[in-house]
Amino acid sequence: MAVHEILAATNAVVTLDVAIPGTVWPWLVTVNMWAKSIGTGVIFMLFLLLRKHPEQAASLRFPTTVVSIIFIHIFLLFTLADLHQPFRMWHIFFYPHLNSAITIGAWMATLFVGLLFLLAFLSFIKKDNVAFDKTLTWVTILAIPVTLYTAALMSQCTARELWQMPTESAQMILAALLSGSAFMILLGGSKLGYEAKKTLGVVLGLSAFMSFTLYMAEYIFGPMKAEEVAAVLEYIKGDGPYTVMFWLGQWVAYLLPMLFILLSRASKSESILKLAAIFALAGLWLVKHVWLMIPQLLPMS
């Protein structure tokens, strides 16, 4: 029986209860996820470009590393800012609970930051491209679980039925590919030729398409699986409080960039490609925010 049918059948109303908690994980967590997507995504893209367009990408080794360091630190800063006891962050390293995705993620992110600084050292101080490329392979491999651990964390939230592990992990990796390719299109400037940017455009377009498909699949089929998912998705349907933001996000992050990429390929326009990249980066924040907020609106008790 669907939620609205139960409500109609019981005609039950909560007449006295305590105030239930508001948002538990606020916009700070959205920034956390958004920045991490860019921080790991640019590493994926650098790895790809160094194989497909090594000459053009050669000069991007250091700038990309710097971008990754900046965005991973934004991710870490906002993670810290969201803690109610930020000065106890060190407990994660001294009292670790290894069943928790938060612990594993914090450890991996710390190692990732260390390796990023090593990349910066190899590219800027030592100027050793061979060592850089060898290290980059390991950094790229580590970037995968660093990207995915938030999906594991969301899936450990038993209360939030909307966040299921296979889908969230796919969304996280696609978000990294989308934002990484978008950022590299902008970062490439005159260093990357049109062909390299076209490659990035393909990654951007395909990840946008896959992400959009997943969201639509959840939007349509999610309510058929679980009562709680149906109730949560009501917040992005009809007059729901997040309906406008959800569709704005889908258009800005996915649909318009896909359209712009097609247009840029037809007209061989780099400007339109850059527009797609800017839209994708801005839209990704909206999409992530909506998906973070809506399960928190549902009363748990």
């Binding site: 962050m89 407990h91 038993t158």
Partner: peptide, 11 residues
């Protein structure tokens, strides 16, 4: 540490 993961996890 006040990460509120438990608040999010408790059904």
């Amino acid at each position: 540490i006040g990460c509120a993961g438990c608040v999010m996890a408790c059904p």
